[in-house]
Write a protein that binds this DNA or RNA. Structure first.
Lengths: 121, 121
DNA sequence: TGATGTGTACTATTATACATAGTACACTGA
DNA sequence: TCAGTGTACTATGTATAATAGTACACATCA
């Protein structure tokens, strides 16, 4: 797979992250069609079921939508943010910050990374 | 366990995070002795082996040190930061940012959380 | 209509990680 | 000596990941 840096993630999670990133970068636009599970499986050297699992999660997250018999397409970006999604996400973020500080990484460096990430995506 | 918000983590990972947080908050100080694996197992309603796994990771991370036959103690905070540790950590942070943006969470909100976390730890 | 390509839903197998349980050992200190 | 350290080891049960194969309803197109 292309995203070598994410060795700690499962294959299907890497694929989900890869597609999310390409959407944020504007490489994939709303209405674009993703390769079929079988095509993507060949491209990424994965089992079709693994790709299907990634597509299923993207669909559940509202990132994509499925037109039965036609394919999977990129959805319009979310307009209103789910408060429950935010509440569920925050502990993850805070855990990452704790881990960073324990490694001796300053909050300033995290801010810098955040700024750079904002530029890239 | 006390850290209810981290249901997505394994028990031993929650314990590691809990101890790291208490160190950052100044509740646990360098030289302080952690409860024995058997004591902590009783406190946290865990199997001693699960606690041992958490202690092992803390030791490997340089967070604690072991005095054989005496116990596990909080180490002095890291002075110089391992560049390899930083390099390995950054993809994790970036993945979190991508996930946040996909949920519709703004970078500004992440900055705010970062500031609040800086105050707490 | 028939053929092809969609996503999806199954079953099954293998491998790995988590958590538990129990036992054993070298070490330290009273 | 004896109790309390961390650690190592085997074993079991559970859950998840990834694989493989099959099947089905649907849409499109010749």
């Amino acid at each position: 797979m292309a995203t070598d840096s994410y060795a700690h993630l499962a294959y299907y999670e890497r694929l989900v992250l890869q597609i999310k990133t390409q959407i944020l970068q504007g490489i994939l636009l709303p209405g674009d069609r993703l390769p079929s599970v079988r095509e993507m499986a060949k491209q990424e050297q994965l089992n079709p079921n693994t790709v299907a699992k990634a597509y299923k999660q993207l669909d559940q997250d509202g990132i994509t939508y499925v037109e039965p018999g036609r394919g999977t397409f990129i959805a319009e970006p979310l307009t209103k943010v789910s408060t429950t999604a935010i509440a569920a996400f925050r502990p993850k973020f805070e855990a990452i910050v704790v881990e960073a500080k324990s490694l001796g990484i300053s909050v300033d460096l995290l801010r810098q990374w955040l700024n750079e990430a904002e530029g890239n995506i």
